[in-house]
């Protein structure tokens, strides 16, 4: 068995962990876009009323933890996932796994991670890392958004694993079950997994009921933005836009609110399944990603106080409408793909 590299860098933390764990499990073909696509990672929801860190509750991706679960299920890999009420038990369990030579995925809060720049350490609890080993009370860790592996002392890691607030990890650990390892993964399984990943994503984005989720959710946000200047005043509106920019572009998204990542996945899927429609859809999402970035530039203009007129808000909203249409078109293309019948 060939030892897989201990550390890989990825754009999004959870994808990176999935790739790291699955490669180690013998699925050497895994890469980040594949993990993201098979796990149906793309999503959009703008929850009305609810506020997060004094900003609108918007997300560009699916629930934390879902990408790992779906990828494993579709690739026929068994996994174990556990949380603990007692921190001591969580630490002992992790140490036992590391002694067996496993790599373990761990959900942590960002606030207490000393290797990240202070500016990024908000109370955000859905960060994922791979713990590689423990030597003399110090954990070797592969945080996939970092260029190089890092270390954390035992108390530091425990504190991060018991971060509090929304999505509190409660010592959450997960790993793949070595018993489900197979000698060879067949092409058919991968094709099937990719198809099912896409199908699920089409369902999540096109057919989810309600006006504030999926592609129609992007329009919903656009409509809100048009009114923000009047409703909230310039200061608060600027703050909200800044919040959107951070959710959309900050480290961990691969830029453009995960759209480039999904486009990269569709490009691979097009090669794998020999489908013209998929590569067309890939272009759609690349364009959507570019527009997202463009909208970020406009939004920055507002909260930096350069261009703050109502017409600027309308422009941003117009971009959101356009993005919504493009993504809708992309997913409709995907919905029409005639899948080869697998077993």
């Amino acid at each position: 068995m060939q030892q897989q590299a201990e550390h890989i860098q990825s754009a999004h933390c959870e994808n990176g962990v999935v790739v790291n764990l699955l490669r180690d499990h013998g699925l050497a073909f895994m890469n980040e876009p594949l993990a993201f696509g098979i796990g149906s990672g793309l999503f959009y929801i703008h929850l009305p009323v609810l506020k997060l860190n004094n900003g609108p509750a918007i997300t560009f991706r699916t629930m934390p933890g879902a990408i790992f679960k779906r990828s494993c299920r579709l690739l026929d890999v068994d996994y174990v996932s556990r949380r603990f009420s007692q921190p001591a038990a969580a630490e002992a369990y992790l140490d036992k796994l590391l002694e067996q030579g496993r790599r373990v995925g761990c959900q942590v809060g960002v606030f207490n991670l000393s290797y990240l720049p202070v500016e990024y350490r908000f109370h955000f609890n859905a960060h994922n890392i791979v713990v590689l080993g423990k030597e003399q009370g110090v954990y070797r860790i592969s945080d996939t958004v970092m260029e190089a592996p890092v270390t954390l002392s035992a108390p530091e890691l425990l504190k991060a694993r018991y971060a509090q607030g929304l999505y509190a990890p409660k010592g959450h650990v997960y790993y793949v079950d070595a018993a489900s390892r197979r000698e060879k993964t067949d092409e058919a399984l991968l094709q099937k997994a990719v198809q099912r990943g896409i199908k699920r994503n089409v369902r999540d984005m096109l057919y989810i009921p309600g006006a504030f989720a999926g592609v129609s959710g992007i329009k919903y946000t656009g409509k809100k933005i048009e009114k923000w200047r009047e409703q909230l005043g310039l200061k608060k509106a600027g703050r909200y836009l800044g919040h959107i920019v951070r959710m959309q572009e900050e480290i961990g998204t691969g830029g453009g609110g995960f759209r480039f990542l999904y486009a990269a996945f569709l490009e691979q899927a097009a090669d794998l399944l020999q489908s013209e429609k998929l590569s067309l859809a890939s272009d759609d999402f690349t364009r959507a990603g570019d527009l997202w970035r463009q909208s970020a530039v406009l939004m920055a203009g507002v909260f930096k106080g350069r261009h703050t007129g109502q017409e600027r808000f309308n422009e941003i909203a117009a971009l959101f409408y356009e993005i919504s249409d493009i993504e809708k078109q992309g997913f409709q293309r995907l919905a029409k793909v005639k899948w080869k019948e697998g077993k």
Binding site: E119, Y120, G238, R239, G242, H243, V245, R246, E249, E250, A296, V297, M299, A300, F303, K304
Partner: peptide, 9 residues
């Protein structure tokens, strides 16, 4: 753009 958003926060 991102640096500005972070700074703003």
């Amino acid at each position: 753009v991102k640096a500005q958003a972070l700074e703003h926060a």
